[in-house]
Design a protein around this nucleic acid. Sequence first.
DNA 1: GTCTAATACCTAAATCACTTAGGTAATAAG
DNA 2: CTTATTACCTAAGTGATTTAGGTATTAGAC
Lengths: 110, 110
Amino acid sequence: MHSPELLKGTLQTIVLKVLKDHGKMYGYEITQRVKELSLGSILLTEGALYPTLHRLEGEGLLKTETVMFGKRVRKYYTITTEGKASVKERVSEFVDFIKTMGNVLQVEMN
Amino acid sequence: MHSPELLKGTLQTIVLKVLKDHGKMYGYEITQRVKELSLGSILLTEGALYPTLHRLEGEGLLKTETVMFGKRVRKYYTITTEGKASVKERVSEFVDFIKTMGNVLQVEMN
DNA sequence: GTCTAATACCTAAATCACTTAGGTAATAAG
DNA sequence: CTTATTACCTAAGTGATTTAGGTATTAGAC
C-alpha cells in the first residue's frame, strides 16, 4: 500500500481509464480491477468511488445501465465519447506531471 | 501549470528533496528553485510552504538558522540526518507509486 | 442450519492538505 | 514615489477523500 495522499487527484483519471480500457463495468468490479492492476497496492474505498461515479455521470463522462442479476442490483457504467476525450487529456496531464516530478526529485521514472 | 490536485501529497517530499540536494536554503529560495526545476509548472504557494516547513522542523526533519541580511530576515533550513532518511523513503515510495500508476493507466512513464 | 466473508449498492460527517486572502516590511527599478 | 520583487507569516475556507455508518443478497464453512 502506498501512502494514500499520493493518490489524491488521481481517482477520476483511474476510473475513466479503466472504463475506457475494459468497457462496461460496475462499481465493485472497478475496485477489483484496480486492485489487480496495481498488484494490491491501490484499494479504492467505496466512500470515494460511488460519489465519483455519480459525479462523472452527472458531467456526462459516463453513462449507466441498471441490471438485475438474480435479486442483486448491478449498475453498469460505460464511458461516453466526451469521457474518452477527457481521459486522454487527463492521462497525458498525469504523464507530464510525472516528468516534471522526475526533474524536481532528480529521479528516473522507469 | 499542472492541475494542482496531482501535487497534493508531494509537497513535503519536494521540499525535503530540494533541501537535501541543494543544502541550506530559505523559504522563498525554495519556491524559486522548484519553479526552475519544474520549468515553471510548479509554483509553490506560501500558504502551503511555510506551514509545511514549520511542520517538518517540528518533526525534526529540518533544522533552522535565522540570519539578518541587512535589515531583512532570512530563515535558513537544513535537512537533518533523520530528514535524509525520510526523504530517501519518500522518494522511493513516490517512484513505486508511479510504477503502479503506469500499470493501472497502461502508460509508459519515460 | 447458521454464521461469516464476500458481493453490491449507497450516504454523510469528519478530516486535512492545500488555496485563498489577508498582514507586515525591506529593497530594487522605473 | 509607485510598483514589483523579495521575505516572512497566519487563518478562514475549500473539497477530495476517509471513516463510519446503513441495507441486502450470495457463497462457503462448520
